[in-house]
Every structure is written in structure tokens, then in C-alpha cells.
């Protein structure tokens, strides 16, 4: 029996170890090694920090890096602000059937490819698009308005794409908040604002953290939305990775960019977990 358990354990452990080592750990180590080398001549490489030096001194690279970081944080904040009242409405105000229907409605866009969602915004926002025509019809504009290819269009797309990943964890945590706790807050003389600040938001914190982490990751790693909705000046860091790898075939610099993106996302995720005193297992698992 003891031996049996041992065999079972090994059989169950093998796929996990193979998966994690061959597809996650070793590829990332390899990527790190590639980013640490410099091409001397054809087929001859030297170990150096040259790629990182290049990445950190070239203004375009650095600017794009920080822009991507700040815009992603902004997108996360906006998504949270828009989603919170809706999640609260679904969790606490709506009852029974309405609640289920609203929740399902939030899930629908997730079942549709990101490409389709982005395409929808292109149809809406472009010069010959619906909103431009609507503005002309109402009389607010006397010629076609181009609303595509700028930062705001990109922001609309980013927020839309990740909305679900904020709403769902928020609804889940808010649902677990007992109505009587809120009532008690009012009975003790609290008003709407203080109840929100002292009771509702602290209770929703786990949902806020896990939603924010996922939304931030999705924005940071997004390629489609910045490419399709953003303009010439809204370069995104993922686009630079793609360019180095596929267009320029400069894998060394591309791997460096990849590592910088990974580092940035790890630091922010770690910081958010640290700030709220939670662990990755609690938040994601």
C-alpha cells in the first residue's frame, strides 16, 4: 500500500514538473541568458549587459516603458472606478432573477474574442463610424470626426477589454458582505459615505486587489488594443517586443524588453500584495 501511494505520487508529480520546467522555468532562464549576451560577429556571442544598457539609455525605449506602466495603472484605476458601483448594484441592490441576469450579461463580452471587441470599437470610433455620424446628425460637429488612433480611444478599449475581470471578483466579495453589517453601520449613525469607507470598501479589499492585479496584467501585456486603437504616438511596450523579435530579428534586445516587462509586472503585483498584506495563493487561487 505504501509503495502504491509512492507510485501514485510520482505519476501525479511528473506532468506538473514537466509542464512547469519545460514550458515556464527553463524558457524564462533561456530568455534571461539570451538577454545577457552581445553579438560580436556571426555566431559569436559575448556575455554582457550591453542590451540592458541600450534599453536603459535610449530615450524612446525608456519613454515607452514608463508610458506603458503609467497608462496600465491608469486603466486599472478607471476600470475599478467604473466597475465598483456596478458590482455593488449586482451584489447588493439587485435581487433574485435580475441579479443572475445582470451577472451573466457582464460575462458575455468575455466569451467574445478580444479581436471582435476591438473591431467593434473601431467601427464606433473611426472617422466614418457611428459616433462621428451621430455627432454630425445631432449637429455637434459639421464634418466627420476622427476619434480613433489616440490615447483616449486606446484607454476606452483597454478598460472595456478588462472590465469583466474587475466586476466578477468584486461581485463575489461584495455578495459575502452581510446586509445586517451595513444596517448596523447606519444604526450607529453612519451615513452613506462613512459606511462605504469603513465597512464596504475594507470588506471588498480582497476583490479589489485580485481584480486590480488581473486588470493591470492584462493591460500591460495587451498588444491588440494599443496596435489597433492607439495612434502613432501611443507605442506600447509589447509592440516593441514584437518589433524586435519578428520584424528586426534582434532577439537579444527583444528578450531584454521581455524581461523588463516581466520585472515591471512582478514588482507591481508584489507591491500590491505587500501593500494589502495578502499572498498570491489567496488572491489567485
Amino acid at each position: 500500500m505504501r509503495n502504491h501511494a509512492r507510485i501514485g505520487f510520482v505519476l501525479l508529480l511528473t506532468p506538473l514538473v514537466l509542464w512547469l520546467s519545460l514550458l515556464i522555468i527553463i524558457p524564462h532562464i533561456d530568455m534571461l541568458l539570451i538577454s545577457l549576451r552581445e553579438r560580436i560577429s556571426f555566431g559569436v556571442y559575448d556575455t554582457s549587459l550591453a542590451q540592458y544598457e541600450k534599453a536603459l539609455t535610449e530615450p524612446l525605449y525608456l519613454r515607452t516603458f514608463w508610458r506603458t506602466a503609467i497608462m496600465s495603472i491608469l486603466a486599472t484605476g478607471i476600470t475599478l472606478l467604473i466597475a465598483f458601483p456596478v458590482a455593488y448594484y449586482i451584489a447588493k441592490m439587485a435581487k433574485g432573477r435580475l441579479q443572475q441576469v445582470l451577472f451573466l450579461l457582464c460575462l458575455i463580452p468575455f466569451y467574445v474574442s478580444e479581436l471582435v471587441r476591438t473591431f467593434g470599437w473601431m467601427i464606433l470610433l473611426r472617422e466614418t463610424g457611428l459616433i462621428s455620424n451621430l455627432l454630425q446628425w445631432v449637429g455637434l460637429a459639421d464634418q466627420p470626426v476622427e476619434m480613433l488612433y489616440n490615447d483616449s480611444a486606446m484607454m476606452v478599449g483597454l478598460v472595456y477589454t478588462s472590465m469583466l475581470f474587475m466586476v466578477v471578483p468584486l461581485v463575489t466579495t461584495l455578495e459575502s458582505l452581510d446586509d445586517s453589517v451595513i444596517e448596523a453601520g447606519y444604526d450607529l449613525g453612519g451615513n452613506g459615505l462613512s459606511v462605504l469607507r469603513e465597512i464596504i470598501i475594507p470588506h471588498a479589499m480582497p476583490g479589489i486587489v485580485s481584480g486590480s492585479i488581473v486588470v493591470f496584467m492584462l493591460s500591460l501585456g495587451n498588444y491588440l488594443t494599443p496596435t489597433m486603437l492607439g495612434g502613432k504616438d501611443s507605442l506600447w511596450f509589447t509592440e516593441m517586443i514584437y518589433n524586435q523579435f519578428i520584424v528586426r530579428s534582434n532577439w537579444e534586445l527583444g528578450a531584454t524588453f521581455g524581461f523588463m516587462l516581466l520585472l515591471l509586472s512582478s514588482v507591481i503585483v508584489w507591491g500590491m500584495l505587500r501593500l494589502t498584506g495578502r499572498t498570491l495563493q489567496e488572491t489567485m487561487g
Binding site: Y223, G254, L261
Partner: peptide, 12 residues
């Protein structure tokens, strides 16, 4: 879950 998809792609 916390590695950007594009980074997973290039590492592989």
C-alpha cells in the same frame, strides 16, 4: 497567470 502572454510566447 501573472506572466504577460507575450512574454510566455517569446520565452517558449
Amino acid at each position: 497567470l501573472v506572466i504577460p502572454g507575450i512574454v510566455l510566447g517569446i520565452s517558449i
